[in-house]
Design a protein around this nucleic acid. Sequence first.
DNA 1: GCAAAAGTGTTCATCATACACCCATGT
DNA 2: ACATGGGTGTATGATGAACACTTTTGC
Lengths: 230, 230
Amino acid sequence: MAYPRPSVTVDLVVFTVLDTDLKVLLVRRGQPPFTGAWALPGGFVHVSDGPDQGEGLDDAAHRELEEETGLQRGTVFLEQLHTFGTPGRDPRGRVITVAYFALVPPDRAPLVQAGSDAAHAAWCSVTHEVPDGSLAFDHDAILALAVERLRASVDEAPIAFELVPPTFTVAELRSVHEALKGATYDAGNFRRRFRRMLTDGVLALAPGKRHTGTKPARVYRFIRSENRNR
Amino acid sequence: MAYPRPSVTVDLVVFTVLDTDLKVLLVRRGQPPFTGAWALPGGFVHVSDGPDQGEGLDDAAHRELEEETGLQRGTVFLEQLHTFGTPGRDPRGRVITVAYFALVPPDRAPLVQAGSDAAHAAWCSVTHEVPDGSLAFDHDAILALAVERLRASVDEAPIAFELVPPTFTVAELRSVHEALKGATYDAGNFRRRFRRMLTDGVLALAPGKRHTGTKPARVYRFIRSENRNR
DNA sequence: GCAAAAGTGTTCATCATACACCCATGT
DNA sequence: ACATGGGTGTATGATGAACACTTTTGC
């Protein structure tokens, strides 16, 4: 146990969908290395030599997320993505980073502006504003993997609901799907999938209607699986 | 950068299928903590304070795998699974472990016996020989996650081929699927899926036939996607 | 009235499942 | 001869893509 140890950090890939476009939260670096470059938010995992040993990885990720966005644990989807530890990825020394990806619904995304370091954080369009090779460290690779994982997860798990307000219309959910996959869905067919989720208890009709400029649409809400069986 | 740092290890969940049963490679611990208990093979990631910074995570996993089984890089499927870093998971101090899972075809599995520390390593049946709570550290949780991921991956990616000899029959591949999922597949329907893979270029007919005690069966081989397009 | 989005229905191809059935071989 | 597993065919139901269609609102 007397060997040199690496530093361990968490990096966050925080997604949201604004204006039917997939956005990622980036911060502008104020210190070297990569001063002035955009990077993923993140920080060191707190470690203690005492008996408590410090904080857990998920705890560190949630802490960093709250520091950066003000969003508290339990209110956002956060999941471990992958761990990156290639030697040389940080010129200062051996740093291993555990990457997480988070999903923030658009109605909570503006909270980012109210964060402590608001000036240097921004939502950037993944497809238009983040050219390959523009991020610090190996954050391009981390972002690429996160996008890939996000796209793959949409068809498997009910994660699109994490990117939508508490109540939403069929068209709104479809819009999120389209933003994630970069393709258009047939409105009729998407509605049928939607109806199946309704009968499966994944969704429920919510009171009220939404006026979007034309015919008012029904609004629905997502039923999390924990509450679905009771 | 002067804060206390954690130790970082890699742990390996090495699977194979022997006698139509899913097995995992376990080692018996010789030192405290958990002396005498079964554990996943693994070890510390080499870190250096010099400019080279040490070895990469994948490199560490491959090194540990070769030390334990003699299987060299490029000959086995190895993929990062998840990183576990709950404080207290190792009573000696803060240890964060990057878990990997590996798939070894049965024709190479016996090589494990030839390893340097052969006596204390064994293939254990996941369903019969590894009761919950029997492994050291949090290795029960790591194994459980690996099994879950393995089961989920079988239907998505062509990973069953990693658990089968270089050439195999339809029944052999079906047997692996059944061992992984713990269910039986209809022989005719499985054959149809198999035929689709054949026309898709995922599989190719291999020369020779295999005598299994009754009518000789055709043998096939897996075409890796890199070679499929040329 | 007209455009645009909400919402419904129909057709067609694909694929999983269940199951009946023939064929070849070792014992 | 016969049991066993290799190998083939068929009917049925679920699902998804493509697309025509009606309804309801705002302008």
